[in-house]
Simulated assay, not measured.
Amino acid sequence: MFAQLSALLPSACALCGEHGKLVVCAACHAAFLNVRLTRCMQCALPLPREDTGGSSRCGACLTDTPAFDHTVAACNYAAPLDQLVLNLKFAHHLALAPVFSAVLRDAILEQRGTPLPDLLTMVPLGQNRLAERGFNQALEIARPLARHLGISLEPLLLNRSRETAQQSGLHPDDRQKNVRNAFMLAPAMLDRIKGRHIGIVDDVMTTGTTLNEIAAMLKRFGAARVSNYVFARTLPH
């Protein structure tokens, strides 16, 4: 019955508006979501193909090594894909979350030889923002991703110890102060992370400050490795 109703309801590609059954049509998927770049293995910023210098890490990560070990980004946070992220986060287009998850899964599995995490979690929202929005977009992406990869998801692994301002609205110099000591490990989860590889899911990685703060905290409590899995990576201005 649901399939029959779905066939009768109008549907359009979230990018081009073409009518069809897919949230993102095959043409837009091929043009925008199937593009692979050579990226820094640690922060996922694009690297020039012809000038990696024999390293898979960018100069910034070699100079000032982040607390996290690895980052997979499915795409860049740029037009037109940035609008998809905004539609998920602020327009409640939850049908986009499984699309993001599937594209991220493909990007992860293409990195052969890179170990998968022992468990997944996501960047938590503060209670005020969660109540205002009604959902955590990172969790909506993480749920199907965990199923795709066959990895346990621990949505209550992390908590915010205090409300923070939106990172996107802050000057880069203020972002570290904003998230410093803002995340806690749930006490019941201490034994779940010791000596293990933890994967953190988020929709967008901007400067990496939030993910770095989380990784540093997890390693203080005994995590052996921390990897980030993000749908989109913001490019430096």
Results as ranks from 00 to 15, higher is better:
residue 231 F to E: 04
residue 56 S to G: 09
residue 136 N to C: 03
residue 115 P to D: 11
residue 180 R to N: 11
residue 202 D to G: 03
residue 188 A to K: 11
residue 18 E to M: 06
residue 102 A to K: 14
residue 149 L to R: 03
residue 89 K to D: 02
residue 74 A to R: 14
residue 173 D to G: 06
residue 87 N to R: 15
residue 171 H to F: 06
residue 21 K to T: 13
residue 13 C to Q: 05
residue 138 A to R: 10
residue 166 Q to M: 12
residue 148 H to D: 14
residue 158 L to S: 00
residue 40 C to Y: 05
residue 228 N to F: 02
residue 212 N to D: 15
residue 203 D to G: 03
residue 23 V to S: 02
residue 177 K to H: 14
residue 64 D to W: 07
residue 156 L to K: 14
residue 153 L to I: 12
residue 10 P to S: 10
residue 236 P to V: 02
residue 8 L to M: 15
residue 36 R to F: 05
residue 13 C to E: 04
residue 54 G to S: 09
residue 68 F to Q: 07
residue 51 D to V: 01
residue 60 A to Y: 04
residue 141 I to H: 10
residue 23 V to R: 03
residue 91 A to S: 05
residue 136 N to L: 07
residue 139 L to Q: 15
residue 185 L to A: 10
residue 50 E to L: 02
residue 66 P to G: 12
residue 157 L to A: 07
residue 62 L to W: 07
residue 34 N to S: 15
residue 41 M to A: 14
residue 55 S to Q: 14
residue 55 S to R: 14
residue 99 V to Q: 06
residue 34 N to C: 04
residue 15 L to H: 04
residue 117 P to A: 15
residue 18 E to N: 00
residue 26 A to K: 12
residue 172 P to N: 12
residue 96 L to S: 03
residue 156 L to D: 10
residue 21 K to C: 00
residue 174 D to M: 14
residue 16 C to S: 04
residue 123 V to D: 05
residue 32 F to G: 01
residue 66 P to V: 13
residue 101 S to E: 01
residue 151 I to K: 09
residue 68 F to I: 09
residue 69 D to K: 08
residue 161 S to T: 15
residue 167 Q to I: 10
residue 154 E to I: 14
residue 166 Q to C: 00
residue 145 L to T: 09
residue 117 P to N: 06
residue 176 Q to I: 08
residue 153 L to F: 13
residue 201 V to D: 06
residue 8 L to Q: 09
residue 222 G to I: 08
residue 71 T to R: 05
residue 69 D to C: 03
residue 205 M to A: 11
residue 227 S to R: 06
residue 63 T to N: 07
residue 135 F to Q: 13
residue 29 H to N: 02
